[in-house]
Nucleic acid binder design. Structure first.
Lengths: 333, 333
DNA sequence: CTGTTAGCGCATTCAT
DNA sequence: ATGAATGCGCTAACAG
């Protein structure tokens, strides 16, 4: 094995040109004659030259990194957002530098600081729940920031997502219009999923407005999952067998409820309606397609990345982009 | 806003010490008296200093980045691996730099080159299907490399995963032992999921050995999903209603099959057994828990990251770590 | 325990 | 169309 990795200087020497010429060829920037470009390319191939981005970043005080800070990867919605981001940057020289906060604002704070130290071109971060320090760092850094998922608060720069409160509200209105009156709610941990709580609040507001309130509600202490939904729905239904519809904090939980109904022989919709949130593939594939609200996670990621990289400087105007949602009729409510 | 970001020099000046002293405090390395450390810390706070890793990386020719190259994030198994990696590095200063290859070896090649340009401490990459150039770059870079998921080939440095061929083989043996003889197979695209194919080959080998062969088999043209499994199982079952067990390429597909049985009133296990692969939560939550093979994705990621960062230099010995798998009895086969 | 010296590899001026 | 000089911000290797 050769001693060190070849540098610009090595390539320049082999090609009989100056370093800056090689640099221009590599970055495909500035005027270069075809002849020298070829020569340089050959030298690069020959030596197996790989540019050192750290040096490049240092010299130009900027990078092609797009920082992405997500609370979790267990919940499929975040990989979906990531796919959207990836779709937007796949054909560009940008690369995603990903951090996972585990829903902890202090972990997030550390990661933001860490991210910033790489001089990213922009940052995508989930939600608005940042520590004071995080906000200060983000604001001071002058890099472009997209706060995604949610549009229920004022962003630092851009917000891309949907109004979870409104989605909850509309879900309830939809169900009320279908004749449901005796609502149950099965949720999961609000501390780690503030958006689930917003949806719940929207739901409750709509019920209030219609002079209704929850017949019963239960929250699983922990992250959402099919098993959690199954277990929690079972408890709720045993305690309040007179509910006529149960709204779940998301589709994972709702599918769990669906499974319990199957096991226990509870006739879905006739006996009790089930309603989720997210519009996951699994819900569509159920024998009775799940009634739910489709959130456009992929789109959120894609639009956020596109908007961010569209303009280098942070504009004075804040931007809020509503990616919306659709009520999916389904067959369970 | 102040003009430029503060640098080590600024902090040093404010604290009345030299740059290297600040550097030592920041990196928590080398002997520093408590008094000066305090002074430096205060200056850092005051100025809101954030280190520039590009400069650090350049000076020390190394970084705290762990490169991770995954084929996709749509398939839950990869986020699971990522969670494992994250668990291993969460309490360390390492950060994951993630690339998604979309199952394309040439995209992978570009990403490897791009990754390498950041001088990562180590790289985790899925599978063994790399281009020649990729292998050369990886080998030449001298950085530590873990090839994960699979242990059915010789790694560059470390392999962490399970033998998919063996898992397939054992699945068939298990089902044969339970009395099944008329096997069906429902799969998805092999081009993008070579491991599914390995499992299939293991299956077939075990059938051969027992003097059996597939009664019928079908593969969905595309990625695995619940809907794909539902649809493909339906076709298979209509064409070969005499199968007594159907093995699916994974749990997503198997759950689709399960749903079709429910819709069509086919009695699972009595009429036809269903068998998956992965051991996802959703399978466990089904009214009849899915019979499947549990792969330990989280563990794969965790062990890979741990092993990689244990020793800085690439050892002369290749290491293969078998994270194994367990047959989950379930109730569908 | 602290400081001095000398780059790391590249891109940004400005020349030519 | 190409090149020379300079420095980005930090750390390794030595002093002391």
């Amino acid at each position: 094995m050769n001693q060190l990795m070849p540098t610009l200087a090595d390539v320049a020497q082999h090609a009989g040109v100056s370093e800056i010429t090689v640099s221009r060829v590599v970055r495909n920037k500035g005027p270069i004659s075809d002849a020298t470009r070829d020569r340089v390319m050959k030298a690069i191939e020959l030596l197996g030259y790989v540019p050192n981005r750290a040096a490049g970043s240092l010299a130009s005080s900027g990078s092609m990194l797009l920082g992405v800070l997500l609370p979790s990867l267990s919940n499929i919605v975040f990989p979906d957002v990531l796919r959207g981001i990836h779709a937007a940057i796949a054909t560009t020289p940008y690369q995603a530098l990903i951090g996972v906060t585990d829903y902890d604002p202090f972990t997030e704070e550390k990661l933001v600081s860490s991210l910033l130290s790489w001089k990213p071109a922009a940052i995508v971060i989930a939600g608005f729940d940042h520590t004071h320090t995080t906000c200060k760092m983000l604001a001071a850094s002058r890099v472009r920031v997209a706060e995604v998922m949610d549009i229920d608060a004022q962003p630092i720069d851009i917000a891309v997502g949907l109004s979870h409160r409104q989605a909850g509200f509309d879900s309830a209105r939809h169900l009320i219009a279908k004749g449901y009156r005796r609502f149950g709610y099965v949720g999961h941990d609000w501390d780690t999923d503030r958006r689930a709580r917003l949806r719940y609040e929207g739901l409750r507001a709509a019920l209030n407005e219609a002079g209704l309130s929850f017949v019963g509600q239960m929250r699983f202490e922990g992250a959402s999952s099919t098993s959690a939904g199954k277990e929690t729905f079972e408890k709720l239904y045993n305690a309040f067998p007179d509910v006529d519809v149960v709204v779940f904090s998301n589709d994972d939980m709702a599918v769990g409820g669906y499974f319990h109904c199957m096991s226990a022989g509870i006739r879905i919709k006739e006996k009790v309606g089930l309603f989720g949130f997210n519009g996951l593939d699994i819900g569509m594939a159920l024998p009775l397609p799940l009634s739910t609200v489709r959130s456009n996670r992929f789109l959120i990621g894609k639009i956020a990345a596109e908007k961010l990289l569209e303009v280098g400087e942070r504009p004075t105007e804040k931007t809020i982009i509503d990616t919306g949602y659709d009520i999916v009729e389904g067959a369970t409510a």
